[in-house]
């Protein structure tokens, strides 16, 4: 494998602590980087200490999903362990449900992958204010929308129909979460134009490169996705 080949190390950490508001700019930087090579860093094999290798083929895609579920589960566990100030009983209940769903997803992938599963990832939530509803729901929205777009983009990369069905079982629940969180932030935004193409009614899916570029802000462990199918 050559250097600069499909690497998503996402080392854009300089402004990590400036928070969620910069998501859009980061996203742009990642897209720009992906097309110009500006932020692609060199690395290639497992031996380079360049992070956790997701692997190849269907295993790689499942590990990719497992990584995202780890991120979501860790986030909601912390949300529920220290609910934001003034939370309603209703949102307490809904967020606890979502935590349990994400933990179930994570544990499913861990068990299904068995010896091929990647290690537990170290997360970085320093940009999130868990005491603040706006910060928590804003992050939840970002994670849920990201998850939906990731599963949709990865589905066609799977070879196994059984795995495709399993991914499908999960992605629609992520979409239910996403719609709820969005409506709690702004009622009626469940299919707004930032996530759905309003001329076709289709969700906007993302490639693993795009997804990991965004998720990388919240994951300390370096992830090597260079062996994923494309």
């Amino acid at each position: 494998m050559t250097k600069n080949e499909a690497l998503f190390e996402n080392k854009i950490v300089a402004d990590r602590d400036s928070g969620f508001a910069n998501m859009t700019r980061r996203k742009f930087l990642n897209f720009a980087g992906a097309s110009t090579g500006l932020v692609l860093l060199a690395a290639c094999s497992k031996n380079d200490n360049n992070g956790v290798d997701l692997g190849s083929g269907d295993t790689g895609i499942l590990n990719y999903a497992y990584a995202l579920e780890q991120l979501e589960a860790a986030f909601y566990i912390q949300v529920v362990n220290s609910f934001y100030t003034g939370i309603s009983a209703d949102e307490r209940s809904l967020l606890t449900d979502i935590r349990d769903h994400e933990v179930a997803h994570r544990e499913f992938f861990k068990a299904a992958l068995g010896g091929s599963a990647i290690q537990a990832l170290e997360v970085d939530f320093s940009s999130i204010n868990f005491a603040d509803r706006t910060s928590v729901l804003g992050t939840a929205k970002a994670f849920e929308d990201l998850g939906v777009s990731a599963y949709n983009g990865a589905g066609p990369l799977l070879q196994s129909a059984a795995f495709l069905t399993l991914a499908g079982k999960i992605v629609s629940v992520e979409a239910r979460h996403a719609a709820l969180i969005r409506d709690r932030i702004s009622n009626g935004s469940f299919v707004a134009g930032d996530v759905v193409d309003l001329t076709t009614g289709l969700e906007k899916s993302r490639t693993p490169a795009q997804v990991l570029g965004i998720a990388g802000t919240y994951i300390k462990t370096q992830i090597n996705a260079s062996n994923l199918p494309s």
Partner: peptide
């Protein structure tokens, strides 16, 4: 798949 998730939303 991109329709499927919109139905779920």
């Amino acid at each position: 798949l991109n329709i499927h998730s919109v139905e779920a939303r």
